[in-house]
Nucleic acid binder design. Structure first.
Length: 276
DNA sequence: CAGTTCGCCTGGGGGC
DNA sequence: TGCCCCCAGGCGAACT
């Protein structure tokens, strides 16, 4: 499940492998992937657009085209493959093809079909778009500071893990890294933080960035999928302290890792290292 | 405002 | 071996 570190890895890889080709045409095989505009307009408008760059906000990947922003959310299992024309693997999970110059194809593959693509004119302010209007600061945004976190936590009295998963708070954290951040904070995921100190909020900011940066360093986390985007296999799963480790010993204290539901999501924690 | 449920999807695992 | 059922999960929408 691509979260900020995985999307950042995809962005880096796209920049290195694709460079700046022109999209000659697009083929859409599953209409629901295209969130905006309608499929016909999407295909028509994207024709002959050169890719100028690759950006990212939270879990959103952004292709900067000449006249448009192509915004993509990979959701659970979205992946890209870059192949020479004639060697394109057409399986039943391939939903969008971008036919590029240099006789190459960028193929979008998504088993669950949850991914979304949006194509907006560049004249529209990116942050006000339907795709991005409800998300908060990117986890590495300089504007994310202790005061902002303190204000948000004070206004939203919810479990720490639920807050971390709230993209309106900070954009980019998903289920894996929310568990890891709670562990590194030494706080149980269900804890409701009442009147947090600025020092605590600063520590939370540093921990969020430290965990995500370490994951980016390792190319992200690859679990439950054997093939990953653009041939990149993440290595951070080796460093996971709690996520996916139910009934195993905590790497710090040896206590058995527990699994529970928090906010409807599978949540892992060490009852000793993360007291309630 | 916050919490819950549903819909979108499919593969995989458990139970029989 | 095969079939049915449930689960996983990001996120928006609808509802309590």
């Amino acid at each position: 499940m691509p979260e900020l570190p995985e999307v950042e890895t995809v962005r880096n890889t796209l920049a290195h492998q694709l460079g700046h080709p022109t999209i000659l045409s697009a083929t859409v095989l599953w209409d629901n992937i295209i969130a905006y505009p309608d499929v016909a307009s999407f295909c028509e408008q994207i024709e002959n657009q050169t890719i100028l760059g690759y950006e990212r906000i939270g879990k959103y990947l952004i292709f900067v085209l000449q006249d448009y922003h192509l915004i993509i959310h990979l959701r659970m299992e979205g992946k890209f493959f870059y192949e020479p024309q004639g060697q394109v693997v057409m399986d039943k999970h391939t939903h969008v093809l971008f036919h590029l110059t240099q006789e190459t194809t960028l193929r979008y593959h998504d088993v669950r079909k949850f991914g979304k693509m949006y194509l907006y004119p560049k004249s529209w302010e990116l942050r006000k778009s339907v795709a991005l209007q409800n998300i908060g600061f990117d986890a590495f945004d300089a504007q994310l500071d202790a005061l902002y976190i303190q204000t948000y936590l004070s206004r939203h009295k919810r479990a720490l893990k639920t807050i971390l998963l709230d993209q309106g708070f900070v954009a980019g954290i998903g289920n894996i890294y929310a568990d890891e951040i709670c562990f590194h904070m030494g706080v149980a995921p269900t804890t409701i933080i009442v009147q947090p100190s600025l020092a605590f909020c600063e520590e939370l900011k540093v921990t969020i960035q430290k965990v995500l940066a370490a994951a980016i360093e390792q190319g992200g986390t690859t679990i439950r999928s054997y093939t990953s985007s653009l041939g990149v296999h993440g290595r951070f799963q080796v460093y996971l302290m709690v996520h996916g480790r139910a009934k195993q010993a905590c790497r710090v204290c040896g206590t058995i890792i527990e699994k529970e539901k928090v906010g409807g999501r599978g949540t892992y924690s060490c009852p000793h290292c993360q007291p309630k």
